[in-house]
């Protein structure tokens, strides 16, 4: 994509102005404006990062540094469903890598890759703050799939192939399950 083709619409620019107004400096609005861009283009490739930097009038290097930190920002074009498998400490201890490798085998791609049909991408990510329900994965920066087993993963893929996203689950820690039952 040539750089000159990229531009925000007036509407988006208005939204960016509203975002900027919420922060003491324009630099602080980087994260939010990267979201605006990612929602628009589906990714924040380098040229999109530059668009964000130039719109906010902050150094391009700064936006690049921020975008490269977060796995949530896609630095390349991704599949329709991005499966972020957590392999950070708690998930790792509870079998995060087994889940990841199972997924890789099932889809025939490695972490960081996208299937040929453009349906799935797999990313290996750090803690998503759901350690209590490890191992887990997140679908395209959205719903979490928790307490994963290989069977659950197979089911998830099948559902996604049919266009069904998993439902949001309200989770409790295992040790609190009894109390939850008692309360309900």
């Amino acid at each position: 994509m040539a750089e000159q083709e990229l531009a925000f619409t007036q509407e988006e620019l208005d939204e960016i102005e509203r975002i900027k107004a919420k922060f003491p400096t324009d630099k602080a609005a980087t994260l939010r404006v990267l979201w605006v861009a990612q929602n628009k283009y589906g990714h924040v490739k380098p040229e999109v990062q530059n668009l964000v930097a130039d719109t906010l009038e902050v150094p391009r290097s700064h936006v690049h540094g921020v975008a490269s930190f977060y796995t949530q920002y896609y630095k390349e074009e991704m599949g329709k469903f991005v499966l972020d498998v957590c392999t950070c400490l708690s998930c790792q201890l509870c079998g995060g890598y087994e889940i990841l490798h199972h997924l890789e085998d099932e889809l025939g791609i490695k972490a960081g890759e996208t299937t040929d049909d453009g349906l799935f991408s797999i990313q290996e990510v750090e803690c998503l703050g759901a350690c209590g329900y490890a191992p887990m994965l997140q679908v395209t920066n959205g719903v979490y799939a928790n307490n994963l087993t290989k069977e659950k993963v197979d089911k998830l893929i099948e559902n996604l192939r049919n266009g069904n996203l998993p439902e949001f689950e309200s989770m409790v820690m295992r040790q609190n399950e009894k109390r939850k039952k008692a309360v309900s």
């Binding site: 990062q49 530059n50 150094p59 391009r60 290097s61 690049h64 930190f69 750090e126």
Partner: peptide, 13 residues
């Protein structure tokens, strides 16, 4: 790539 793989770099362009 802040984290354990971090290093200084320019913007890609």
């Amino acid at each position: 790539s802040r984290g354990d793989k971090n290093y200084p770099m320019t913007a890609p362009s």
